[in-house]
Design a protein around this nucleic acid. Structure first.
Lengths: 342, 342
DNA sequence: TTGTATGCGTTATCAC
DNA sequence: GTGATAACGCATACAA
């Protein structure tokens, strides 16, 4: 006499109501093994009446830890970048009938524990940036949780999915140089993410190749608009006035816009600005922002696909680099052709 | 002789290595019951050597379905709105040591099944918009999965968390009327979300109160920038030229900006525009966009908090309405004071 | 303080 | 075609 209220029915309740054994109930719902049509009908009706659905946890336990769930670990969740990656990831997951578990480490000290816990509840994990130490990555993958890395270098035996940074950054810097910008400041923290480090490196290489002085350090800055605003304000207010600033992402660049506007500086007349990511706002602001278009959504899609393949036993550990497209707009034009009255 | 490779160790392996029973191992790691210091030490060392962590699935099975995971169901994942809500939700979850499982229904026909499946793996679920039918909401809550509704009306016994819409929309429309805008078109689909329906209703009420003709239907439009662009283009190209458009959200409004710009129409000189949400881009575009600021992140925070309370047994079913702040910027100024040359 | 035995809800392997 | 029953990995009441 179960199924009073509050408590969900279990397989025994259904079996009793249909007058069969639990084995038969399991066969009917799992579609495994032969069942007489009449029996199947009775079981289905009983399950329906009791609103019973097999318990996923018990199912996962007997399956030896197959959950039908994949996870993704972000450093943060804000901004435009991570949500777009997540959207692509989720799309693939749902298409393949997998649940999606997410975690943002926020630089917490116990990130490794959090991720270890997460790994216990998923079939596989996409790990982004430097959210956890390399040895944990290796251990998780060795312990039966498939792992794919995202936006960071690969680890032996474990594939990474990334977007191109170095060459695109060099090309972007070269574009600025061609437009007559000589002093170029990088705003962003290379230690914040592998992607940022590569962009900074790309700028350095371009300056070196042009025979220009290479700044030894960037203006450190978080990847957010308020941080970009503050960093640019501080820079400009202490009298530093480069020809151009190359920002680690679009949000920083939009913060620079605000700082420049406050100080009556014209873009690109007084200061050329470039971003990275090509967020929707980049083409709406004025002047439209020169940036590098990363396939954000596709990063999520490809990493999810690789992860599902690995969960299914694929041992291919080749990394994947997705193309980034330089997107030139008005914010990086030469001073001469775009001088405006502030 | 377990723990060869590839396979994770279990509690028996650890117990054997430490020379104790599995009960003792369980006690040590769970912190339940008394254990001699020396024994505890041996167990800890064994667990460490085998890199063993208790299996969360088995643990959940024993606990009768307590997973330490909460879930949230979105209609979609794109745009600026959902990610921000998610960020707030995730923050509360992690602070309370809970995992986060997400699902976007994308209007799929089998959404109810997907959500039912999700409910099997979480302690509680925040359900947003009209992603699943009311009776399923009631059933889930009755079957042991705590439920909190978000951005939609409450169901008997189940609380909802929402942001204010009706009064704010009326106030926004009244603001437009005061600025001399007489014909106001609503762009957005009231059937898309309860929030949108209330905004549309607010406009109707304001027009009615002002004794002006009330349009019988809005211009239907998805909540995205491209859709807003298309809808506005179609409207303008068929000669309809209202004084003002009130958009269901900011993304639609930004699409209207693009359509207006293409046609040489000045905002607000030829067409006043308002949005909803106050996304970051709203203050960056020119002219800055008049909108209504919803506490997006707080919607996520509050719904997560209510959910955790319900998971813990709280039966309070009072709903919560968060304040929305009308944010007047230049895009809704009167025609006279802001006429610009296109 | 520690060990033994049972149950959580399901699937799968046997018999029948 | 169908029914017992043994795992799956862990927590815990009960014994010792």
């Amino acid at each position: 006499v179960r199924h009073d209220a509050g408590t969900a029915a279990n397989i025994y309740d259904v079996a009793a109501r249909a007058g069969v054994s639990i084995a038969t109930v399991s066969r009917v719902l799992g579609g495994t093994g032969p069942v007489a049509a009449a029996t199947r009908q009775r079981v289905l009706e009983a399950a329906d009446a009791l609103r019973w659905r097999p318990n996923e946890v018990a199912r996962a336990l007997v399956a030896g830890g197959r959950f039908g769930v994949i996870g993704i670990v972000f450093p943060e969740l804000g901004g435009q970048y991570f949500p777009e990656v997540l959207a692509g990831f989720e799309d693939v997951a749902v298409r393949n009938e997998r649940g999606v578990l997410i975690l943002a480490t926020h630089g917490r000290a116990n990130s490794a524990d959090l991720v270890s816990g997460l790994a216990q509840r998923v079939d596989g994990l996409v790990v982004m940036d430097r959210t956890i130490p390399d040895d944990l990555v290796g251990h998780l993958d060795g312990a039966g949780t498939a792992v794919v890395l995202l936006a960071r270098p690969a680890v032996t035996g474990i594939p990474a999915v990334r977007a191109e940074n170095l060459h695109t950054a060099t090309a972007l810097a070269t574009h600025l140089l061609r437009n007559g910008h000589r002093s170029i400041t990088f705003i962003g923290d290379p230690d914040a993410a592998p992607d940022v480090a590569e962009r900074w490196q790309g700028l350095q290489q371009a300056l070196l190749a042009a025979g220009l002085p290479v700044p030894d350090k960037p203006v450190p800055c978080e990847l957010s608009q308020p941080a970009g605003h503050r960093a640019a304000a501080a820079m400009l207010d202490r009298g530093a006035r480069p020809d151009a600033v190359m920002c680690a992402n679009d949000e920083i660049a939009l913060g620079v816009y605000a700082a420049a506007r406050e100080r009556g500086l014209a873009i690109p007349g007084d200061l050329a600005v470039t971003g990275w990511d090509d967020v929707p706002a980049a083409q709406l602001v004025s002047p439209p922002l020169t940036t590098a278009h990363q396939p954000l959504r596709e990063l999520g899609v490809r990493s999810a696909e690789r992860l599902l393949a690995r969960v299914a036993g694929d041992r291919d550990d080749a990394s994947l680099v997705l193309p980034t497209v330089l997107t030139i707009r008005a914010s990086s034009a030469s001073h001469d052709t775009h001088r405006e009255v502030p």
